[in-house]
Amino acid sequence: MAEFLLIHGSCHGAWCWDDLIPHLQAAGHSARAIDLPSHGDDTTDPADVTLDLYASAIVAAIDTPVVLVGHSMAGYPITQAANLAPEKISKLIYLCAYAPMIGQSTAQMRQMADTQPLHDAIIVAADRVTFSIDPTKATEKFYHDVDPARAAWAVGQLGPQPILPQETAITQIPNVPRHYIRCTNDKTIPPAFQTKMTAGWAAEMVTQLPTSHSPFLSAPAALATALINAL
């Protein structure tokens, strides 16, 4: 049985995986989630957050090798964690995530997409240390296929996102097995760009779900099956 370590995306926290974890556990696997520095219950000053700090927090949370799952911007932290400690990671799974390209930051990759669906929802703080998501637009971007009450709850959990980690490039890709789960109704990272990021990946390394950017809330059972099938 696998041990899954789940890493959230921008403005989210470990809370976003709450509906998924029981499905993985019911199938006999272990699963847990952590808050990255300055997210969720973590009190790190956003001004101190770097991509390496994200990666180091992930590595510190691992005792025995894990299947490391990264959602959205967490494609970068999980990749960097695997660069730091490849022996601690049995597989990387990118869930509608940025699959890094050497020399490119998350922000640069976002700009590579033909469309920018998140652009009108981003609110940059006056000090430019963080950005937030306009709460009036968060549901349409992240949770449009989620139960309305659950979506409203999720919007209320969103917090500020440190900018510096997203402006930091990856300089190498780890030699660790990987898999990508595309979300074909994603209104945050365009599905066409998810396909572009995985061009050249072997067919068995890519699967897809007919969901929004947040299958952990809209289709947790289906996501659990997809994660298990990716092992």
Rank of each mutant, 00 (worst) to 15 (best):
D18E: 12
T130Y: 06
H179P: 12
L92M: 13
W17F: 12
I228P: 02
L24K: 01
T207I: 01
A126Q: 11
R110H: 04
Y143D: 08
F216P: 02
I34E: 00
D45E: 05
D41K: 11
A97W: 06
H23D: 03
E204L: 10
E87I: 06
Y98M: 15
A154I: 13
W15R: 05
Q116T: 12
Q172P: 05
M197E: 13
D41S: 13
G40V: 09
H29W: 01
S132P: 03
T50K: 04
I181T: 05
Q161W: 11
N83P: 08
A60M: 03
H29S: 01
V66M: 08
P177D: 11
V124L: 01
F4S: 06
T225W: 00
R32V: 01
A224E: 14
F142C: 06
A55I: 01
P65I: 10
W153Q: 14
L164A: 15
G200W: 04
K196G: 00
C96T: 13
N229H: 14
L51N: 05
L209E: 09
A126G: 02
G200T: 05
A219K: 10
I58S: 05
A138Q: 07
Q208M: 13
H29I: 11
I133A: 09
A2Y: 09
H179E: 07
V66L: 06
A107M: 14
Q194T: 07
D134I: 01
S72R: 09
D145E: 14
I34P: 02
L92S: 08
Q157Y: 00
G9H: 05
W15S: 04
A221Q: 13
P65S: 06
R32T: 02
N175P: 01
N229A: 14
K91I: 03
I78E: 07
P46L: 08
V206D: 09
V124M: 02
G103Q: 10
W17K: 01
R128D: 13
P65K: 07
L227K: 10
A31T: 05
S212V: 04
L95D: 08
Y76D: 05
P86H: 01
M205H: 10
V124G: 00
I34H: 04
P215G: 06
A47I: 01
P46T: 02
P177V: 05
I173D: 10
D45P: 02
Q166K: 04
G103M: 06
A60T: 05
